[in-house]
Design a binder for these strands. Sequence first.
DNA 1: CCGCTACATCCGCACAACCGGATATCCGGA
DNA 2: TCCGGATATCCGGTTGTGCGGATGTAGCGG
Lengths: 110, 110
Amino acid sequence: MDAQLKREVNLLHANVCQALADPTRILILYALGEAPRHVSELADSLEAPQSTVSRHLKVLRDRRLVTTARDGAGVLYSLADARVIDALDLLRAVLMSALSEQGELARRLS
Amino acid sequence: MDAQLKREVNLLHANVCQALADPTRILILYALGEAPRHVSELADSLEAPQSTVSRHLKVLRDRRLVTTARDGAGVLYSLADARVIDALDLLRAVLMSALSEQGELARRLS
DNA sequence: CCGCTACATCCGCACAACCGGATATCCGGA
DNA sequence: TCCGGATATCCGGTTGTGCGGATGTAGCGG
């Protein structure tokens, strides 16, 4: 296998995929896809403690998937690249196919 | 936040994103994107022990991201849905943007 | 029918990631 | 300058996940 591809995939994993490996972070990305938000807003809508949300935001920030801007006393987080949402939506479509196939299978077996 | 979306994202994470949360599995998907392969072929090209590859394949199989077919003495694995590759390529594009931005930043600071 | 190849699973271990309360830091306004 | 609200980070503990050698299992070919 191409060693170049291996290196690139390692980067892809470390910088992007791993960031998507937590449901809370995915929800944060979707929320920011709608509009920029403050940390406390996100904590409220996710019903998660502030420290948890902040920690997840750090993960996304370190990988440059979100950007920050000071806004008065708070910090406004925004989605850095809308294509992340496109990719997630694509994966959702894949999921739907897999699920309906499973349903199909269950139907056949019953 | 919409409880419906939360449920769907949980499924998305459990069934798809978590499967992408390992570089070896991503490489397997790319390899299968080129052509169906046997377990031993994958183990060779990834330079990973057979047990490791087989375990990763189980993860992908359980989530229906790959399909299997018996082929003589062995088992042939194939990519179940090419859109997974599309999504990964999209994320690669996102990564490239983020990296070049980082480079930009490093240049400005130097 | 048997042995062998190809694959799947088991096992014990090590490491990484998440959690959430508590605490520290930052900043704007009075 | 000092207070308070908004975020960030620290901490201890728990759980999850990957690893790879060893061991099971299945099915083809002789």
